[in-house]
Amino acid sequence: MKKLASNIMILAFCCGMISSAFSADTICFESRKGSSEVTKRDLKPGLPNVKCSSKTGAVLWWGDPFDGTVPLGDMPLLGNIPPGKAVVKPRAEKLAILPMCAVACHNGVGPTFIPPTLPKDKKPKPLPTMEGLLPDAKNLQHGRGGLWCLDCHHTTQRNKLVNNFGDPVSFDQPQLLCGKCHGDKLRDWRDGIHGKRIGEWASTGKKRWFVCTECHNPHNVQDGARNRGFIQIEPETPPQLPRGMKNARHELLPGVSH
């Protein structure tokens, strides 16, 4: 009896192991870590939605470029693109603390509520709760000290961004905010020169556009001392050494003088 029970226990344990091994989802990131992640699955038998790098976990290949996309919202000077040809992946549902923002602390209602403004000494007061939720807020690296939170985030509707006129802008359309200062980049992005698109290459084809925040973290665009627009990422493996070559140290030596 005891043996049977132990056998059943072993069997159950094995089943649990197997099921956990199968249910472990592979999550890959699309452009940079911490933004637009995809769970690996099969669109149909033999056609995965993405292929990922085994070294870095980056998406290398899309089975369906339009998987889970919605039409790009209205934007000035985009009238020449037929409806439905420009799509984006919604970002709002992926931002973990966004549903809390509008209800928990910054609901913008109440008899004593005064919309916050920059303090007189022009030094924003650090809020420990906020910094705990969003570590990026502790050390804002954008605008070289010339910006604070509410230059980009809406005063009363904290789950929205803000445009030049103080109107709320969805987190799915950050280009309307970023274009306030980076107009040259916005123009290039609109024409497909800056940024990334996947889908059909014809100028009239359907494309998935990557919005600003899918590639840049707006709180950390300077990336410390590098002072550049795209953060450092882990590279993929180098090419295979040719037959007979032991290492690639020759590349680090100055070339022979001719």
Binding site: T237, P238, E251, L252, L253, P254, G255
Partner: peptide, 9 residues
């Protein structure tokens, strides 16, 4: 100046 590297890691 180095002549360029293919195997940088």
């Amino acid at each position: 100046v180095l002549e360029g590297q293919y195997f940088y890691e």
